[in-house]
Design a protein around this nucleic acid. Structure first.
Length: 414
RNA sequence: GUGGCUGUAGCUCAGUUGGUUAGAGCACCGGUUUGUGGUACCGGGGGUCGGGGGUUCAAGUCCCCUCAGCCACCCCA
């Protein structure tokens, strides 16, 4: 049995589910292109360094969730756990640092060795947008606007909430981090074991701990907003102002901190209450230091990723499967003729389903099962007059059509 | 990685204090209609009871291990 089971945390996507995924990707691509973001894609694996450096050695992703291995040539390889670092690497590889701004849309599978749960898989899929070379808050605003537009187009925006926060620029962030470490170190004995661990790895994360004891300590902690320098405050004010102008609803959440080291200034998450513990549907932020971390020139960036599975779960409707026209030949002579007619119709742009065997009844049943809109019945009677019977499977009406006019006649069923 | 719940036909589930050949609905296949589907009626196929081990005269029912899903923690998409 185990060999017939997919690997833990991976899932096959069968046609019904695939159409939902496709709807997500196509909707996102469509809107991204309208915003000027062009589709590209990167390999699903990279040298491990591409992820290790920018995400931070102490991040959860790097410390325990990466699928890493040495390939046959001894190279340290990692299945990508996220898109941003890989896209930035591609941006640098292609030498696009003087061709700014760069606006990319991409989508594809990501891999994280997590414990699976509803809405959390080891291989999952993301849509992703990145904007490189724009230091202005307008970049953050456009990014968020694109995200909410996509959710709206998918019909799920109403069940989500946008939360934003700022980490400030690198100076502010580092200064605050030091203050936090000092504060939490003083209260170390009151922290949960997990938070003591966070103190060493990622002190900011203590701020959104759910542990009641931690919360008391956090309540007295110095706040990030007090440690922002003026430039950082102005930047964030400009972002929220832009969202206000666009009428995008958001909630400022001072305790929102994201796990990856490379974020600066705005960070945001779109969450839902309909997916259990996996509340985040879309997450991202500004990463002005990332390009440098990967060896490029100082280049600002903003981006986000959204989970395709999670968005698909929020969608209330499954896009319908395409409805073909069924070819139903009767008898050996008709079958031969049907083959060439089917091919001609397909070349003319029609979706045609050819039943492979069975009598009229069986083939009609199959036609119904595949959701055919119409059936072409081709028997000896029809062949004799160089015609075919075309039956509208929704109305039940049928008529005799000349084979010469068949393609034209069938266009109505496209 | 930690803790908890669950696992019977393709799907959703029922299976009494362990006790004869493990059931239903839906789906599937066939027939009623050998040139007509979707409705109706009749019939049929299909299950190593997730896997392995143990207790017992007897295990789908009890115990242990294991795998997977789900839930919470963690983390995020």
């Amino acid at each position: 049995m185990s060999a017939l089971q997919p690997v833990r945390g991976t899932h096959d996507i069968l046609p019904d589910e695939m159409r939902r995924h496709r709807r997500v990707v196509e909707t996102a691509r469509d809107l991204a292109e309208r915003y000027g973001y062009l589709e590209m894609s990167t390999p699903i694996f990279e040298f491990t360094e591409v992820f290790r450096r920018p995400l931070g050695e102490t991040s959860d992703v790097v410390s325990k969730e990466m699928y890493s291995f040495a390939d046959r040539g001894g190279e340290e390889i990692t299945l990508r756990p996220e898109a941003t670092a890989a896209v930035v690497r591609a941006f640098l590889s292609a030498g696009l640092t003087h061709d700014l701004p760069c606006k990319f849309f991409s989508h594809g599978p990501m891999f994280r060795y997590d414990r699976p749960q509803k809405g959390r898989q080891r291989q999952f899929h993301q849509i992703n947008v990145e904007l490189l070379g724009v230091a202005d808050p307008l970049g953050d605003i456009e990014m968020i606007a694109l995200g909410t537009d996509i959710l709206a187009a998918l019909g799920v925006l109403g069940r989500t909430q946008l939360e934003i926060n700022t980490l400030g620029d690198l100076d502010s962030r580092h200064a605050y981090r030091d203050v936090l470490i000092a504060y939490f170190s003083d209260h170390r004995d009151k922290l949960s074991a997990e938070s003591v661990d966070r103190l060493a790895r990622n002190p900011l994360r203590i701020l959104d701990s759910k542990d009641p004891g931690d919360r008391k300590v956090v309540a007295g902690a110095p706040s990030l907003s007090e440690h922002l320098n003026q430039a950082s405050r102005d930047f964030f004010a400009a972002v929220t102002e832009g969202l206000d102008i666009l009428g995008i609803a958001y909630r400022q959440n001072p305790r929102l901190v994201r796990g990856l080291d490379y974020y600066t200034h705005s960070i945001f998450e779109i969450t839902t209450e309909d997916l259990g513990a996996q509340a985040t549907v879309l997450g991202g932020g500004r990463y002005d230091g990332l390009v440098e971390l990967l060896g490029g020139p100082p280049t600002p960036g903003v981006g986000w990723a959204a989970g395709i599975e999670r968005l698909a779960m929020l969608m209330t409707e499954t896009p319908p499967a395409p409805r073909p026209i069924a070819m139903v030949p009767l008898g050996a002579a008709a079958e031969g003729k049907a083959l060439s007619i089917v091919q001609a119709l397909r070349r003319a742009g029609l979706a045609v389903d050819l039943g492979f065997s069975g009598n009229l009844k069986k083939r009609m049943r199959r036609a119904n099962k595949v959701g055919a809109r119409a059936a072409i019945i081709l028997g000896d009677d029809e062949l004799a007059g160089n015609t075919a019977t075309v039956r509208d499977l929704d109305s039940g009406e049928q008529e005799l059509v000349s084979l010469d006019a068949l393609s034209e006649h069938l266009v109505r069923f496209r």
